[in-house]
Amino acid sequence: MGSIAITTDRLSKIYDINRKNEVQALKDLNLRIKKGEIYGLLGENGAGKTTTVRILTTMIKATSGTASIFGNDIVTDSSAVRKLVGCLPQDAGLYEEFSAVENLNFIAELRGLYDEEKKSQITALIEMVGLEDRKNDRVETYSGGMKRRLMIARAMIGEPQVLFLDEPTAGIDVLVSRRVREIIKNLAKQKNITVLLSTHDMISAERITDRVGVLHKGVLIAEDTPSRIIQKYARDLNDLEDAVVNLIGWTGEANEVSA
C-alpha cells in the first residue's frame, strides 16, 4: 500500500430519464483508494454504486468532476485506464457456446496477449477460480457459481492493477459466495491488486474489505473501516448490515426533516 490507485474529485452524474426529469445518481463523490486496498462501496438500490463503477471503468462519462486511475484521467486517458482495470459488471454475461478457455482466449487477444503469455495467464486464472476440470466444456452447461468464477477470471485477464467488482456474489449460494470472497482476498493480498467492491453482500464487505464507503442517493455519507462503521452506527446487532441500515435510516430521516 502507499500510492493512490483511484482518485475521484467532486464526481457527479445526472441521468436524463426523460427530457424533463433528471435524476442525480452521484453527487460530489470524493474517493482516495490506495494501491492493494479492498474498498467496499455499499448502499441501497439506486444509491449510485453501479454508476460509480461505470464512470471509473470509462463506460459512461461523469456530468462533472474528475477521476483518475493511477494518475491516468478516465476521460482523457481512457485507453490507458482500460488497460489498467479489470471489471466484473453487475449484469455481465459470457459467450454461452464457448468453453471457459475460449471465453478467456477471446478477451486475452483483445487485451493484446498472445502465445505463451496468453496460455500461461489463462491456465493460471482457470486454476485460481477452480475450473480446471470443466475448462473445455461449454459455458451453457455451467452452474451460476461457476459462471461467476469464470467472470472473475475474465476480469483478471491482462493482469489489471485495479479490479472493479459489481455485485460479484449476487444470485449465488453461500458456498460459492465464500469461494468468490477467498478469490478476491487472495487477488488483493498476493498480487497487490486494488479492488473496488460494489455490493449488497454485507458479509463479504465486512470480511474482506479494508475500508467501506456508504452511498445514499448518490452522496457518500460515511467512509471508514468496517469495524469502525459498526462501532459508530450499529445498534441492535453488532454487524455491518445493522450499521448501514441505521446509517441510511438516519440520513433518510434527516433528509425528510430538512425537506
Binding site: 463506460m59 485507453s79 482500460r82 459488471p89 455481465a92 454475461g93 483483445l110 493484446g112
Partner: peptide
Amino acid sequence: KTLESLILQP
C-alpha cells in the same frame, strides 16, 4: 450480456 464486457476492453 457480453456487450458490456466487450466495451470494457482496451
